[in-house]
């Protein structure tokens, strides 16, 4: 039962990754691409980590997976902010 739930989480996460990837390829400009990438990947990775934690069942690994997610969340949000800021600066010139 918990395996099934975990697989459901992982598959939903993969769907978000796929949507984000399609967004990066299809959306017209940098800012909307960043939007697609960060939003989808953050949620996708969260669901992926949650799914893996459920399948694994161990508390310690769940904490580790949660940390992975939080670190990627902080890093990718900051990176997206920096890229967007740089793009705005260049557009101003």
């Amino acid at each position: 039962m918990s395996d099934l739930l975990g697989i459901l989480f992982v598959l939903t996460g993969i769907a978000f990754f796929a949507a984000g990837s399609i967004g990066v390829l299809r959306l017209p400009d940098l800012h909307s691409r960043l939007h697609a990438l960060t939003k989808a990947d953050n949620l996708g990775l969260g669901l992926l980590c949650a799914g893996l934690a459920i399948i694994d069942g161990g508390a310690l690994n769940a904490v580790k997976l949660f940390l992975v997610w939080v670190l990627v969340l902080a890093a990718s949000a900051t990176a997206a902010h920096l890229i967007a800021q740089q793009a705005l600066r260049q557009a101003d010139k």
């Binding site: 670190l71 902080a74 890093a75 900051t78 902010h81 920096l82 800021q85």
Partner: peptide
């Protein structure tokens, strides 16, 4: 660095 990157650095370096 701006406040956001500076915050991340302050957080990541000890880690």
């Amino acid at each position: 660095a701006g406040p956001l990157l500076d915050g991340l650095i302050r957080w990541l370096v000890p880690l």
